[in-house]
Simulated assay, not measured.
Amino acid sequence: MRLLIAGAALCLASAASAQVYRCGNKYSSTPCPGGREVDTSPQVSQQNSNVATTTLYLCQSYDGGKFWTREHCAQRNALVDRMESVPAGLPFEQQVELAKGQRDSSQVLTAPPAQATYTDSSQPSKASECTALDARIRYLDQLARAGGTAAYMDWIANERKQARDRQFRLHC
């Protein structure tokens, strides 16, 4: 029994120190090209701390301008763009600088990772594209024979014309 508990504790300790990477829309324990390391450490809650905080609001006025305030944006006839918690005992200018820093760091975290570009060297051959276009035209002809609304028939005619134009450009 003690051996089982010790093994579970060892697994939990190794899992807690494992690195996590964001690869596009997926997460992985191994690094990937263009991936970013994700901080999986537990968030520190400010509710239990003795530091008094206040909320700053980044407001957007109806004419598009943005400004920071301690009051809710509705009191200044504006829309709330963002809210940031900052220490209460600082001058307003310092609170704004801290709030801007928090906003900038969160934008870096929420920004999508850089997309890796892949070049596909396996371009479809002319013969395979001609065959695919011929099958597409046959399918569109079947749809047209089945009938439908005027808008649907116009769509079919447009798609068929585009496929025939592509065939002409390829000299199929």
Score class of each variant (00 low, 15 high):
L140F: 11
Y139R: 05
S106N: 03
P113W: 00
D63S: 13
R2W: 01
R145K: 14
G35P: 00
Q95D: 08
N158V: 04
C11H: 02
S106G: 01
I137F: 00
P31T: 08
A8F: 15
M153A: 14
T30E: 15
V108N: 02
S106D: 09
S61T: 05
R70G: 13
W155M: 06
F92L: 09
R138W: 07
N48M: 07
S85A: 15
S41I: 00
A16H: 07
G147K: 11
C73W: 09
T149S: 15
L98A: 00
V38T: 01
A111G: 01
L56H: 01
D120S: 04
A116T: 12
Q107G: 06
L90A: 05
Y62D: 05
T53P: 00
C32N: 08
Q115C: 06
Q142N: 14
Q167W: 15
R145W: 01
P91L: 02
V86L: 09
N158A: 14
S125I: 04
M83T: 15
R70K: 14
Q107R: 15
E129A: 04
G89W: 01
R166T: 06
A6G: 09
D63N: 13
L58G: 02
N48R: 04
S128A: 10
F168A: 15
N48D: 10
G89Q: 08
A13S: 13
I5C: 05
V96S: 03
V20E: 01
E97H: 05
A111F: 02
I137W: 01
A52I: 04
R103L: 11
A116S: 10
Q115I: 09
L4T: 11
E93F: 03
L143E: 13
Q162V: 11
A111M: 07
A144V: 13
A150Q: 13
D81M: 09
P33F: 08
L143I: 07
S29Y: 12
V96G: 02
A146V: 09
C172W: 15
G89P: 00
Q19E: 14
R136N: 04
T54P: 00
V86A: 10
L170K: 10
T54E: 05
D154G: 13
A78P: 11
A13H: 03
S61M: 03
L79E: 08
S14L: 11
G7N: 12
Q60A: 10
R70L: 12
G24F: 05
S85E: 13
C172Q: 11
P112E: 12
L4R: 13
R103M: 07
K66T: 15
A127D: 12
R70M: 05
F92M: 07
K126Y: 00
S17V: 14
N50V: 04
S106L: 12
S41G: 12
K100G: 06
